[in-house]
Design a protein around this nucleic acid. Sequence first.
DNA 1: TCTTTCTTTTGACAATTGTCAAAAAAGGAA
DNA 2: TTCCTTTTTTGACAATTGTCAAAAGAAAGA
Lengths: 187, 187
Amino acid sequence: MNALHQCISQYHPISIAAWEALTKALTRVEVPKNSFLVKEGMVCNKLYFLERGCLRGYYNLDGKEVTYWFGFENNFITSFYSFISRKPGIENIQVLEDSTLWGISSEALHQLFDQHHDLERLVRIINEQYYIRLEERLMAMQFKTARERYEQLLETSPHILQRIPLGQIASYLGISQETLSRIRSQV
Amino acid sequence: MNALHQCISQYHPISIAAWEALTKALTRVEVPKNSFLVKEGMVCNKLYFLERGCLRGYYNLDGKEVTYWFGFENNFITSFYSFISRKPGIENIQVLEDSTLWGISSEALHQLFDQHHDLERLVRIINEQYYIRLEERLMAMQFKTARERYEQLLETSPHILQRIPLGQIASYLGISQETLSRIRSQV
DNA sequence: TCTTTCTTTTGACAATTGTCAAAAAAGGAA
DNA sequence: TTCCTTTTTTGACAATTGTCAAAAGAAAGA
């Protein structure tokens, strides 16, 4: 819970009242490795904060698993499209290591928004920061070679390489596992 | 102005008071074709609503212009990274057709947020919708071939093809102009 | 320890896409 | 119209990346 408070403060400090209301609405979730937090076809009604562990989001395309994000400590996690639109998504969220999360339902969050303006501001700000990250990823995907994307990942998130199988990283980078393996051997 | 009101209502209706405060803070901007709304190296301090015309965002990479978005009627326009972080960006926003915009400064917008909770909610919701769009684009970029991305663009935004030069569309799709030309001839 | 399973690497080849250069087509201005 | 500029297409070739199959290596369980 402390990790969440610290994480929030980096984005936008909130009032004590808002924090207390938030903590009351949060549920602690412990999930074991290889379980699923979200499965395709379901509505993801919860937003999570990942305190410990790691997850990945992927979907199935032509029989292949396509990874499009990883979540690590202090990340906010949800099946974004589904959570926002309240419709079933195509996304699976798989637990890659035993993890501890704090979850809040969409309804509870929106109630809190009504009561605590500063909480809604916090979420707006977090959204904006996540948008910027996504934009950077899109640019890399659009205009950089596989090797450049890999080297960028090495710089910004070296921890990914220690914790995630190569095939999933390759998928995340938008290349085949064989290509990534060859890139690594040619550094 | 009416177009903006209608556009806003589709995302989240706001109170009359909020709308009136917003309209007071807006400035009408007319920009001619080939002018620039934002140039790289400057802080983009304004958020715009595009009422009429069309724009593109691009940056320079190794001497090439890299287009990463187009804006059309009823789109919100800004150099997002710069606007949010209040730092200089690498982005240029070029006017592709004579355009009419409504602009608001970052300061004015944040003042409005303090006074009108529902306006901040509106922006949160718009941000979320734009996030989802970006996510879709990233997925296409990550896991679809050039041809598939082009066909997807044909379906979702056929108007782009009538209004934008091929080279810029190719850049937007992350492929060379020659490749796009060949894809088109082989449909 | 020895299996068994999962992950990573390597080889051979094919498909996709990029680059450079030139030609063709289209659009604007006088 | 004609000239000039911009945009689009085409050709030839190279570079990048993907696919399939097999081998090698690492990790996990009995």
